[in-house]
Nucleic acid binder design. Structure first.
Lengths: 171, 171
DNA sequence: CCGGATAAGTCAATATGACTGACATAATTA
DNA sequence: TAATTATGTCAGTCATATTGACTTATCCGG
């Protein structure tokens, strides 16, 4: 269960050190990848006078239409005061619409407008290109590993549940 | 006339859609993983009145002792004014030492003090635990895939070069 | 050896994204 | 009806980042 690698001639100390170094490299890889992964959308956002927070809102509302403000707060893990400035700008400038909830009329269900979809498309394009190219280059097996490790890093069980296998076997 | 319904082997259109969805999931996975990956150190940093920027500096100086200020700026991709506030605090509070460069005396080579090493250890412990557990759970093949994909996401060739294979064949 | 380039540091002003705390409103639910 | 919940808002603060201008010390090429 613990055998990461089968090495007959390494001592436990070396083994542990090598593993520790591998983990530290993983940490650093995450930093670099995230840094570059956000750089291109950030440049586009600047045109609109928006920041990374706006991207996150547009992304999640795009992927989960009719989500509530509370759900969005739970995903982003920020306060409603922080969200409100960003969300308010997006609503006032016509990127996001709010609909009264049908069952619970206190809820404001969030939706992208046409303009919002265009923005989402522009912002995600460089990220999709970057990640898509990395996927293609690394191959399907590597992508499976990438997903597995990232899922292991995510703390919250509910958040992990968002990620069903990419192609669930139908029937 | 693309028949959506009854198809054992997917058409190109479906194939493309599935791939696009897989890439979008990857983007989201990166967001969630990075969010959780930074949450625990952030709480520790708050005890010191520090922020994430201090963590990054302590991390890179710890991993690359005697690095110059310019190298650090290149890695972090921030302005020297931004770095200076953070670095200055760390130096003044005894977490980082600066040594004059031997060849080039304009350089201030950066080093962790004992206190700095302790801080680095505290900050990295939860990250190492989280990433280490994810590695262990996912297995060696998955880790290889994780590394491959993240390397593909990193834009800069010089940055990619930092990541030699975790166990280079000695001899 | 002089002058330009480079490494580092600094001052000032500004923007963004986050926080805490307090409070308001409307709607749901017990 | 009363408590709770979903959302929104006002006010103040902090950390991180920016641009732009400038200084000091040092290096290096002509």
């Amino acid at each position: 269960m613990t055998d990461i690698i089968n090495r007959p001639d390494a001592s436990d100390g070396d083994e542990r050190e090598a593993r520790k170094e591998a983990v530290r490299q993983g940490i650093e890889l995450l930093f670099f990848a995230y840094r570059d992964f956000t750089a291109e959308p950030d440049a586009i956002l600047a045109e609109y006078g928006f920041g990374r927070a706006h991207h996150r809102v547009v992304h999640f509302v795009g992927r989960h239409p009719h989500m509530t403000v509370g759900e969005l707060l739970g995903i982003l893990r920020i306060t409603k005061q922080s969200l409100n400035r960003v969300l308010g700008q997006l609503v006032r400038q016509g990127f996001i619409m709010q609909q009264r909830g049908a069952q619970d009329r206190r809820q404001r269900l969030l939706l992208l407008t046409e303009r919002g979809r265009e923005l989402e498309e522009r912002l995600s394009a460089p990220q999709r290109a970057r990640v898509g190219a990395a996927y293609k280059k690394a191959g399907a097996a590597a992508v499976e590993g990438f997903r597995k490790v990232l899922l292991g890093i995510i703390a919250d069980e509910d958040d992990r549940r968002r990620f069903a296998p990419p192609r669930p076997p139908r029937r």
